[in-house]
Amino acid sequence: MHAPDGFLTAGTAVATGAISVGAIGVSLRQAREQLGDKQVPLAGISAAFIFAAQMFNFPVAAGTTGHLLGGALAAILLGPAVGSLIVAVVVIVQALLFADGGVTALGYNVLNMAVVTAFGGYAIFRALLRVLPRTATGVVFASGIAAGLSVVLSATAFSLEWLFGASFPVPFDTVFGAMVGVHLLIGVGEGVLTGFAVGAVVAARPDLVAGVRDLDRTALRDRTSIGMRGFALAGLLVSLLFATVVSQFAAPAPDGLERVAQDTGFDAAAEDHALADSPFADYATAGLGNEPLSLAVAGAAGVVITLAVGLGLVAAVRDRGSAGDRAGDRQHSPT
């Protein structure tokens, strides 16, 4: 989801830009502490891996293909600070060199694709590890679900930014519904790919996976085979659950086309009055069917994202002690 130039208003671009710059600053410092003078080669080559993985298409269904986004994957493998840092570098280079995503859109693109997915995804991953068995199987499931939800979180973040910075009149709840709906599907793919990728790393070099450094190595070696069916089922269950919850809130948002017919002209005037002094973009609130409810949804979503990213940050800081000795790790035997 590389938004182009001018997709959100200038104010939103600047505000999200400030948040992203702050987040990259924090990540840079933490990455430095975690990797020491290995920071540049390790983060650089890992960024190349994430970039390359994004270019690699996997089958999804009926001839369509998808690819990894990699925010949660990077965070689980390398920790949320390094993870968000390298995905941010990928996003910035894609905008500057590949014209993929706008340069003035970097504020929200970095925030949504790097910061929210890495910190949010990592927080979900760690939370899931508290309830799931702390074995290789548990790690695969936790990674998959966290990666899937990180994509949904990213879509939600974009919808919230839309609330403040819409550049054309599509109401918040339509954007929210569409973004979350589409990204639930994308999230299933992201989850499956991330889960198996993390599983392969855990099997080969569990010591490299930052997100499981505190787990018992012998328990991680205990691998029961994970059936594709079980995994798909779990993914489906989680997305269904999520979709139900979201739709409970967002149900008042009818189909866009229908909406256009029904709202013609008359809503805009009415809403203007109610939200005259609100910080929200007129475009995003114009035509809301049930405005307080929609804003409540937006508020709840905002709290969830802030909480997830905040928890990711806390986890990053707390894990720093144990992650620190990685920099001093001696190399693995060469072959």
């Binding site: 290995k38 390790l42 080559i45 890992s46 499956v192 392969a200 790393v201 070099r205």
Partner: peptide, 17 residues
Amino acid sequence: AASAAGVVFVRSYERGE
């Protein structure tokens, strides 16, 4: 393919070292 991606990550990390 996803597992192969995981293995490529390990190789990338080792290359970094």
